[in-house]
Protein backbone atom coordinates (compact mmCIF):
# COMPACT_ATOMS: atom_id res chain seq x y z
CA UNK A 1 0.00 0.00 0.00
CA UNK A 2 1.55 3.31 -0.99
CA UNK A 3 1.75 6.31 1.27
CA UNK A 4 -0.06 8.42 -1.28
CA UNK A 5 -3.29 6.90 -0.01
CA UNK A 6 -2.60 7.79 3.56
CA UNK A 7 -4.80 10.84 3.40
CA UNK A 8 -6.89 12.23 6.21
CA UNK A 9 -10.12 11.14 4.62
CA UNK A 10 -9.40 7.63 5.79
CA UNK A 11 -10.13 7.88 9.44
CA UNK A 12 -8.42 4.61 9.91
CA UNK A 13 -5.40 3.85 11.95
CA UNK A 14 -2.98 2.31 9.51
CA UNK A 15 -0.18 1.31 11.81
CA UNK A 16 0.44 -2.35 11.92
CA UNK A 17 0.11 -3.56 15.42
CA UNK A 18 2.84 -6.13 15.62
CA UNK A 19 4.22 -5.98 19.10
CA UNK A 20 1.86 -4.00 21.21
CA UNK A 21 -1.01 -6.26 20.38
CA UNK A 22 -4.59 -5.34 20.00
CA UNK A 23 -6.30 -3.52 22.76
CA UNK A 24 -9.21 -5.64 23.76
CA UNK A 25 -11.53 -4.37 26.41
CA UNK A 26 -13.78 -7.35 26.74
CA UNK A 27 -13.15 -8.61 30.24
CA UNK A 28 -15.92 -10.69 31.65
CA UNK A 29 -17.29 -11.45 28.23
CA UNK A 30 -15.65 -14.74 27.59
CA UNK A 31 -17.71 -17.86 27.69
CA UNK A 32 -17.66 -19.83 30.87
CA UNK A 33 -15.82 -22.67 29.23
CA UNK A 34 -12.91 -20.48 28.26
CA UNK A 35 -12.69 -18.96 31.70
CA UNK A 36 -12.94 -22.28 33.42
CA UNK A 37 -9.98 -23.58 31.49
CA UNK A 38 -8.02 -20.52 32.52
CA UNK A 39 -6.69 -19.95 29.04
CA UNK A 40 -8.24 -16.76 27.85
CA UNK A 41 -7.21 -15.88 24.33
CA UNK A 42 -4.25 -13.53 24.28
CA UNK A 43 -4.39 -10.13 22.67
CA UNK A 44 -3.49 -10.91 19.08
CA UNK A 45 -1.28 -8.84 16.87
CA UNK A 46 -3.05 -7.61 13.79
CA UNK A 47 -1.04 -8.08 10.64
CA UNK A 48 -2.83 -6.02 8.04
CA UNK A 49 -3.94 -2.43 7.99
CA UNK A 50 -6.31 -2.02 10.89
CA UNK A 51 -9.46 -0.18 11.72
CA UNK A 52 -10.75 0.74 15.15
CA UNK A 53 -14.19 -0.54 16.05
CA UNK A 54 -16.35 0.13 19.10
CA UNK A 55 -19.41 -1.97 19.70
CA UNK A 56 -21.74 -3.57 22.16
CA UNK A 57 -21.61 -7.33 22.31
CA UNK A 58 -24.14 -9.20 24.38
CA UNK A 59 -24.88 -6.08 26.36
CA UNK A 60 -21.30 -5.12 27.06
CA UNK A 61 -19.27 -2.41 25.40
CA UNK A 62 -16.09 -3.35 23.62
CA UNK A 63 -13.52 -1.79 21.36
CA UNK A 64 -10.58 -3.04 19.42
CA UNK A 65 -8.17 -2.36 16.64
CA UNK A 66 -8.71 -5.05 14.03
CA UNK A 67 -7.40 -6.07 10.63
CA UNK A 68 -9.70 -4.35 8.15
CA UNK A 69 -10.08 -7.63 6.21
CA UNK A 70 -11.30 -9.63 9.18
CA UNK A 71 -14.84 -10.92 9.30
CA UNK A 72 -17.09 -10.39 12.27
CA UNK A 73 -17.04 -14.17 12.70
CA UNK A 74 -13.26 -14.24 12.97
CA UNK A 75 -13.37 -11.29 15.33
CA UNK A 76 -15.77 -13.12 17.61
CA UNK A 77 -14.05 -16.48 17.42
CA UNK A 78 -10.37 -15.68 17.09
CA UNK A 79 -10.15 -12.38 18.99
CA UNK A 80 -12.92 -12.28 21.54
CA UNK A 81 -13.11 -15.93 22.53
CA UNK A 82 -16.78 -16.11 21.61
CA UNK A 83 -16.76 -19.46 19.85
CA UNK A 84 -20.53 -20.02 19.85
CA UNK A 85 -20.99 -18.73 16.32
CA UNK A 86 -19.58 -21.38 14.03
CA UNK A 87 -17.73 -21.42 10.74
CA UNK A 88 -19.39 -23.89 8.41
CA UNK A 89 -18.71 -22.40 5.00
CA UNK A 90 -17.28 -18.89 5.43
CA UNK A 91 -19.34 -17.79 2.42
CA UNK A 92 -22.84 -17.10 3.72
CA UNK A 93 -24.11 -20.47 2.51
CA UNK A 94 -24.85 -22.40 5.70
CA UNK A 95 -26.06 -20.07 8.45
CA UNK A 96 -23.92 -21.58 11.24
CA UNK A 97 -22.39 -18.15 11.89
CA UNK A 98 -25.71 -16.35 12.34
CA UNK A 99 -25.67 -13.53 14.89
CA UNK A 100 -27.84 -10.46 15.35
CA UNK A 101 -26.67 -6.97 14.51
CA UNK A 102 -28.97 -4.32 15.88
CA UNK A 103 -31.52 -7.07 16.38
CA UNK A 104 -31.43 -8.45 12.84
CA UNK A 105 -29.97 -11.78 11.86
CA UNK A 106 -26.94 -11.69 9.60
CA UNK A 107 -24.21 -14.03 8.41
CA UNK A 108 -21.22 -12.95 10.49
CA UNK A 109 -18.81 -14.67 8.10
CA UNK A 110 -19.76 -12.27 5.30
CA UNK A 111 -19.84 -9.23 7.56
CA UNK A 112 -16.63 -7.23 7.78
CA UNK A 113 -15.74 -6.72 11.42
CA UNK A 114 -15.18 -3.09 10.52
CA UNK A 115 -18.88 -2.77 9.81
CA UNK A 116 -19.91 -3.35 13.43
CA UNK A 117 -18.41 -0.08 14.59
CA UNK A 118 -21.17 1.62 16.56
CA UNK A 119 -23.43 -1.42 16.34
CA UNK A 120 -24.95 -3.85 18.78
CA UNK A 121 -24.10 -7.50 18.30
CA UNK A 122 -25.82 -10.43 19.96
CA UNK A 123 -24.39 -13.93 19.80
CA UNK A 124 -25.58 -17.22 21.23
CA UNK A 125 -23.55 -16.46 24.36
CA UNK A 126 -25.91 -13.55 24.97
CA UNK A 127 -29.04 -15.70 24.73
CA UNK A 128 -30.19 -17.34 27.92
CA UNK A 129 -28.07 -19.08 30.52
CA UNK A 130 -27.89 -22.55 31.99
CA UNK A 131 -30.21 -21.46 34.78
CA UNK A 132 -32.59 -19.54 32.57
CA UNK A 133 -32.73 -20.90 29.08
CA UNK A 134 -34.32 -18.75 26.38
CA UNK A 135 -37.67 -20.28 25.33
CA UNK A 136 -36.16 -21.11 21.95
CA UNK A 137 -33.29 -22.97 23.57
CA UNK A 138 -35.71 -24.92 25.73
CA UNK A 139 -37.85 -25.70 22.70
CA UNK A 140 -34.82 -27.00 20.79
CA UNK A 141 -34.15 -29.38 23.69
CA UNK A 142 -37.80 -30.42 23.99
CA UNK A 143 -38.10 -31.28 20.30
CA UNK A 144 -34.55 -32.62 19.96
CA UNK A 145 -34.06 -30.05 17.23
CA UNK A 146 -30.37 -30.79 17.08
CA UNK A 147 -27.95 -33.63 16.72
CA UNK A 148 -24.26 -32.84 16.45
CA UNK A 149 -25.01 -29.33 17.68
CA UNK A 150 -22.64 -27.53 15.36
CA UNK A 151 -25.28 -25.62 13.43
CA UNK A 152 -27.40 -25.17 16.56
CA UNK A 153 -26.22 -21.74 17.73
CA UNK A 154 -26.88 -20.38 14.25
CA UNK A 155 -30.24 -22.16 14.08
CA UNK A 156 -31.31 -20.69 17.40
CA UNK A 157 -30.20 -17.17 16.50
CA UNK A 158 -32.03 -17.47 13.17
CA UNK A 159 -35.09 -18.97 14.85
CA UNK A 160 -35.41 -16.17 17.38
CA UNK A 161 -35.16 -13.61 14.58
CA UNK A 162 -37.60 -15.61 12.47
CA UNK A 163 -40.22 -15.26 15.21
CA UNK A 164 -39.51 -11.57 15.78
CA UNK A 165 -39.77 -10.86 12.05
CA UNK A 166 -43.22 -12.41 12.04
CA UNK A 167 -42.22 -15.33 9.84
CA UNK A 168 -43.23 -18.11 12.21
CA UNK A 169 -46.99 -18.16 11.81
CA UNK A 170 -47.18 -21.33 9.69
CA UNK A 171 -44.92 -24.36 9.26
CA UNK A 172 -44.46 -23.39 5.59
CA UNK A 173 -43.28 -19.93 6.59
CA UNK A 174 -40.90 -21.35 9.17
CA UNK A 175 -39.45 -23.80 6.66
CA UNK A 176 -38.91 -21.05 4.11
CA UNK A 177 -37.44 -18.52 6.51
CA UNK A 178 -35.23 -21.10 8.21
CA UNK A 179 -33.82 -22.37 4.94
CA UNK A 180 -30.72 -20.24 5.31
CA UNK A 181 -29.54 -22.55 8.09
CA UNK A 182 -28.39 -25.93 6.89
CA UNK A 183 -28.55 -28.83 9.33
CA UNK A 184 -26.65 -31.70 7.79
CA UNK A 185 -27.78 -34.04 10.56
CA UNK A 186 -31.27 -33.39 9.26
CA UNK A 187 -33.05 -32.07 12.36
CA UNK A 188 -35.44 -29.94 10.33
CA UNK A 189 -38.63 -31.56 11.58
CA UNK A 190 -37.60 -30.86 15.17
CA UNK A 191 -36.50 -27.33 14.34
CA UNK A 192 -39.89 -26.47 12.87
CA UNK A 193 -41.65 -28.00 15.90
CA UNK A 194 -39.38 -26.12 18.30
CA UNK A 195 -40.09 -22.79 16.65
CA UNK A 196 -43.82 -23.49 16.71
CA UNK A 197 -43.56 -24.13 20.44
CA UNK A 198 -41.41 -21.11 21.27
CA UNK A 199 -43.03 -18.56 18.98
CA UNK A 200 -46.07 -17.75 21.17
CA UNK A 201 -43.86 -17.47 24.27
CA UNK A 202 -41.47 -15.12 22.51
CA UNK A 203 -44.28 -13.06 21.04
CA UNK A 204 -45.87 -12.74 24.51
CA UNK A 205 -42.53 -11.97 26.12
Amino acid sequence: MSDAHDSKIFEVTRRQVLEVGTIVSMSGMLPAAAQAQGSVSQPTPENGATVRVSFQINGQPGAMEIDARASLLDMLRERLGLAGAKKGCDHGQCGACTVHIDGRRVASCLTLAAKVDGRTVTTIEGIGSADALHPMQQAFIDHDALQCGYCTPGQIMAAIACVKEGHASTPEDIREYMSGNICRCGAYVGIVAAIQQAAPQIERG
Binding site: A32, A83, G84, I124, G149, T152
Partner: peptide
Protein backbone atom coordinates in the same frame (compact mmCIF):
# COMPACT_ATOMS: atom_id res chain seq x y z
CA UNK B 1 -28.33 -30.62 24.52
CA UNK B 2 -27.84 -27.92 27.17
CA UNK B 3 -24.23 -27.36 26.18
CA UNK B 4 -25.23 -27.30 22.56
CA UNK B 5 -28.15 -24.86 22.74
CA UNK B 6 -26.08 -22.52 24.89
CA UNK B 7 -23.24 -22.53 22.36
CA UNK B 8 -20.90 -23.90 24.99
CA UNK B 9 -20.03 -27.22 23.41
CA UNK B 10 -16.45 -26.72 22.29
Amino acid sequence: AYEKVLGRAL
